[in-house]
Nucleic acid binder design. Structure first.
Lengths: 203, 203
DNA sequence: AGGTTTTGTGTACATCTGTACATAAAATTG
DNA sequence: CAATTTTATGTACAGATGTACACAAAACCT
């Protein structure tokens, strides 16, 4: 009668149960799990990151997450670092397309709107990373690299000090804009950049 | 022999056990608990905010936290809102002392250094709030008020657009600076502000 | 082939967590 | 004073969570 502990069945035991004949070795599985973790963080926040949530999102059994990552903190660290690297890579890629010239303020505005709109998920995760790094020294370098990439990018089109200044403006606009509902108007952002660049508005 | 559940004794039952003759009614207890929650968030991050951690920090029994706050989310919301209001109040107070004039860039630099240094805790909590608001609509207004206060403050000393721009720079510098180790140099910050203000450096 | 190692899975379980609630002490009211 | 309401506390407990681990299946080696 003693309700044996064995009844305490863990739910979410195995996702994708039917696929019986799947190949055993699955390269890139580790990365897929990490990417699922990024999704969980983006959609529910770090505080709701659990092995089981990740397993469900990645459609792998629970044991798989603990096999590929020793601890949950490891998983978080790997995932956030991954996300941060993706962000930096994406930024550099954008830099290449930016060379075509054009009005700097307009280009910067485009970039901000992009990160607030289509790339919102990316931005959210990056911000989660920032805050997580406050209490996890191991993550600090990952979050700092984003700043450095921003600075480098902007410095390439202006100069040392202006680059830093623009990076700060950019960062600030992202932070202020990501919580705001709805997303700020394009004109508002552009005017701010113009003012920062010391350019008078030519109508 | 069946290990009855009653053995599963909850630790951390009562803090401050000895104080037997304490007055029963304790005004401001609710707020003290909220403030303890802020401390926990500042020191360990939101993901480690638990009833028990708060009870320990506030030196009250566990039951006290659940009595004053229906749910943990309530506690978090009240605490973060409290912290945000404190921040805004402190900012306005600083604004009064700012009227004395002086170089704007220097004053702004002071403020940044203050938030990165002596007021670091405050800044950390504010940033935790920002990110928490991303997944909790109820907190958005609280985090937005900080932005508004910043804008208003800076606008009062310049103009509409410049105020917004300076608020963005300020916000960005805080975000970039709070994760950096060590805190950025004073000169670096000041130069950025000068550049943003369009002023040439007079040596 | 047979044996060894790597890769993967299901399950068990101690621990932590939020919260309910019975109980009591103080305050308040009559 | 008695009764009722508010404030407070200790404890119980269901559920979730991180993680260990026994087992199995594939891959690899000789």
């Amino acid at each position: 009668m003693t309700t044996t502990d064995s009844e305490q069945l863990d739910a979410a035991g195995s996702g994708r149960r039917g696929q019986s004949g799947g190949s055993r070795k699955d390269p890139g599985r580790r990365e897929r799990i990490a990417r699922a973790a990024i999704t969980v963080v983006a959609e529910r926040g770090i505080e709701r990151l659990t092995h089981r949530a990740v397993a469900a999102a990645a459609e792998v059994p629970l044991g798989s997450t603990t096999y590929h990552f020793a601890t949950l903190d490891d998983l978080l660290a790997v995932a956030l670092r991954q996300a941060a690297q993706d962000n930096v890579a994406e930024l550099r890629e954008y830099a290449d397309r930016m060379d075509s010239g054009g009005d700097l303020a307009a280009v910067l505005t485009d970039l901000v709107l992009r990160y607030l709109g289509p790339e919102r998920r990316r931005t959210v995760v990056e911000h989660e990373l920032y805050v997580a790094a406050l209490h996890r020294p191991a993550l600090r370098s990952a979050s700092t690299e984003w700043d450095a990439a921003l600075r480098d990018l902007f410095t390439a089109y202006t100069d040392e000090v202006s680059g830093k200044m623009l990076a700060a403006v950019f960062c600030g606009l992202l932070w202020q804009g990501i919580v705001r509902e709805p997303v700020p108007e394009r004109d508002e952002i552009e005017m701010i950049f113009r003012r920062a660049l010391g350019t008078s508005v030519v109508s």
